[in-house]
C-alpha cells in the first residue's frame, strides 16, 4: 500500500517536474501528464463512489462536466474524499497536496468541458466595487450565509458554512460550481467582476474592525439576548446580592 502511494507520488512528481512550474491557477491548460496522474489518483481514491469512468453511482454524482473548478473546490477544502456519507460533506483536513489536486482537477476537466479553475486575473478583486459587492452579497448570499458570512442552518440538518476561512479562489469556485446545496451563479448572471466584488466584500468583512467591541459571533440578536441575561443581568444580580448581604 505504502509502495503504491510512493510510486504514485513519484509519477505525479515526475509529471509535474516535466510540466512548467507555473502557478496552477494561472495555467489552466493541463498537460497530458497531469491528466494521466490525475486518472491514477482518481482510480485509487475516488472511483469507488464516483464510478470507474467518473460517471457517478447511486452514492455519488457524476463528475463529467463539473469542471476543474468543482474538483479543485471539493478537494482543496477537504470536503472530498468523503469520510462518511451524511447530509452534507463537512470541511476537514485536506487529503491531497497541491500537485495531486491539480492533477485530479486536470483529469476531471479532461472528461468534458466545465467551469475552470479561476485564473489569477479572475481573482484580482483589488479594483472591484465594494458597495456593489455588498448589494450582491445581501441579495444572493446572506439568506443562507448570514450578514457577516457566519453561516446558517438549512433544512433537514444541512447548513451553509461560515465563509471567514474561505480563500478568494474557493469563494469564486463555489459561486461558479454550486457545491452541495448551493445554487450555481454562472458568469452570465454574476459576471466575473460581480464575483470579484462579492469576494472583496467578504474579504472586507473578514478584515474590518468591530467598532462596537466583541462581536458575539455575529449571529444577530440571539447571542445578544443570551449575553444580556448571562452577562448583564447576572452581574447586576451579583451587585444586588452584595448590596443586600449583611456586613460583619
Amino acid at each position: 500500500m505504502l509502495l503504491i502511494v510512493l510510486a504514485m507520488l513519484g509519477v505525479v512528481y515526475a509529471a509535474v517536474g516535466q510540466a512548467t512550474t507555473a502557478d496552477a491557477a494561472t495555467d489552466t491548460a493541463a498537460t497530458q501528464a497531469q491528466v494521466t496522474a490525475g486518472h491514477k489518483l482518481f482510480q485509487e481514491g475516488c472511483s469507488s463512489c464516483h464510478g470507474l469512468g467518473a460517471q457517478g453511482t447511486q452514492n455519488a454524482p457524476t463528475l463529467i462536466g463539473v469542471g476543474s473548478a468543482a474538483a479543485d473546490f471539493q478537494l482543496s477544502t477537504g470536503r472530498m474524499p468523503l469520510a462518511v456519507p451524511g447530509v452534507q460533506a463537512p470541511e476537514k483536513k485536506i487529503q491531497y497536496n497541491d500537485t495531486q489536486i491539480a492533477a485530479l482537477a486536470a483529469f476531471v476537466a479532461s472528461l468534458s468541458p466545465g467551469p475552470q479553475i479561476p485564473t489569477a486575473k479572475d481573482l484580482d478583486y483589488a479594483g472591484a466595487d465594494l458597495a456593489l459587492g455588498g448589494q450582491i452579497f445581501r441579495t444572493n448570499c446572506t439568506q443562507c450565509h448570514n450578514f457577516a458570512g457566519a453561516g446558517g442552518a438549512l433544512s433537514q440538518g444541512a447548513y451553509a458554512p461560515n465563509l471567514m476561512s474561505a480563500s478568494p479562489q474557493e469563494i469564486y469556485e463555489a459561486m461558479l460550481t454550486g457545491p452541495e446545496n448551493m445554487p450555481v451563479f454562472s458568469d452570465q448572471t454574476l459576471t466575473p467582476s460581480d464575483k470579484q466584488a462579492v469576494i472583496k466584500f467578504i474579504e472586507n468583512i473578514r478584515t474590518e474592525p468591530n467598532p462596537g467591541g466583541w462581536s458575539l459571533g455575529s449571529v444577530g440578536p440571539v447571542s445578544e439576548g443570551l449575553f444580556v441575561w448571562i452577562g448583564g443581568l447576572l452581574a447586576l444580580i451579583a451587585a444586588a446580592v452584595w448590596i443586600g448581604a449583611k456586613v460583619r
Binding site: R138, T142, Q143, A148, G152, A153, W214
Partner: peptide, 21 residues
C-alpha cells in the same frame, strides 16, 4: 466592550433582501 445591533453589518432595508438568523 460588547457590540449590540451592528446595523452597518446588516445593510439598509430593502424588501428583497434577507439574512440568515
Amino acid at each position: 466592550f460588547v457590540t449590540i445591533n451592528p446595523i452597518w453589518a446588516y445593510g439598509p432595508y430593502t424588501p428583497d433582501q434577507i439574512t440568515a438568523g
